[in-house]
Design a protein around this nucleic acid. Structure first.
Lengths: 69, 69
DNA sequence: CTACGATGTAAAGTAAGCTTGACTTAAAGT
DNA sequence: ACTTTAAGTCAAGCTTACTTTACATCGTAG
């Protein structure tokens, strides 16, 4: 799952620690999500969307393959 | 996290097992999500949204409390 | 050169998401 | 009565999300 966290952060001049604070998670969690180590939980994704005031789909991009049938 | 899965399913006359098959998860997972036992992962939420062709926010409703500051 | 802030990464632990298998209950059909 | 189907639930086990602590790297400012 790709995401635009790094860019959205840069636009606001926030560090990973800043964002982590605002979302109430650890700095390592932000780092891991940005680096694609894992995806956020749905509740965290909602929190991110609310913080940046945009839909989840505008921040996270699904890459799940479509069934070949 | 509330969700409209049961209604969306009913509109299409799908059983929990039907939906589970389409989403490639177990029937128990659908049941647990519908009953609010836990939230789906973000990838699964995307899959649900894609299946029903609507934004995640139109299916799942966040209830996380807003910070009192 | 040293110090500092931001980022990256790792290990170990807990919690949440999901699986399979099994069993129960209720509704509906025969 | 018996069978079938949908829904609900539980237990054990695995994987993923997240935590804390700790340390390494890099750029920049003094």
């Amino acid at each position: 799952m790709k995401n635009r966290l790094k860019v959205l952060r840069a636009e606001r001049d926030w560090t990973q620690a800043d964002l982590a604070d605002k979302l109430e998670v650890s700095r390592q969690t932000i780092n891991a999500i940005e680096k694609g180590k894992y995806d956020p939980s749905l509740p965290l994704a909602f929190k991110v969307a609310r913080l940046f005031e945009m839909p989840i789909e505008a921040i996270f991009e699904d890459e799940t393959e479509v069934e070949v049938s």
